[in-house]
């Protein structure tokens, strides 16, 4: 695809420079002629200009980088499917497991144990004060 886009770009630039040079020559011709009326641009130069600009537009659009999906589930699904992206472990470099936050959650907090420890500390400090 990129090769085709480059070919389109090169062909478009060639056509465009040819068309612009032709128009320039045409304007020189008009300035040399004795009649004061300036002839309009010949049809073939007009068509060549429009055609080359169209070619270049298609080439520029094709050679630009691909758009990325913005929906989170599509983006994450694509990331999960690609092997090299999953091997990346750093955060924020376009890789890694997008579900890491869900898969590596901390375990539940032992509320009863914490309560017991706090009670023990309370009792201990109370005994010390007495």
């Amino acid at each position: 695809m990129t090769f085709a886009a480059n070919v389109l770009n090169v062909v478009g630039v060639l056509f465009l420079s040819h068309a612009v040079y032709s128009a320039y020559e045409h304007s020189l011709l008009a300035s040399r002629s004795t009649s004061s009326a300036v002839p309009s641009l010949p049809l073939d130069i007009t068509l060549e200009t429009l055609f080359s600009v169209l070619l270049l537009c298609i080439g520029v659009v094709l050679s630009s980088p691909d758009l990325k999906p913005i929906q989170w589930h599509v983006w994450a699904g694509r990331l999960e499917k690609s092997k090299e992206a999953r091997l990346v472990t750093e955060v924020g470099v376009g890789g890694g497991n997008p579900y890491a936050a869900l898969e590596e959650r901390p375990g539940f907090w032992d509320v009863r144990g914490a309560q017991k420890a706090f009670g023990g500390w309370l009792r201990e400090s109370g005994e010390k004060a007495n």
Partner: peptide
């Protein structure tokens, strides 16, 4: 349906590059 900010930025940059060139 959350969206990915990085992709939004990348797309906007790509489109504005194409527009400037054309």
């Amino acid at each position: 349906n959350p969206i990915v900010g990085e992709s939004v930025q990348h797309n906007a940059r790509t489109v504005s590059n194409i527009r400037a060139l054309t």
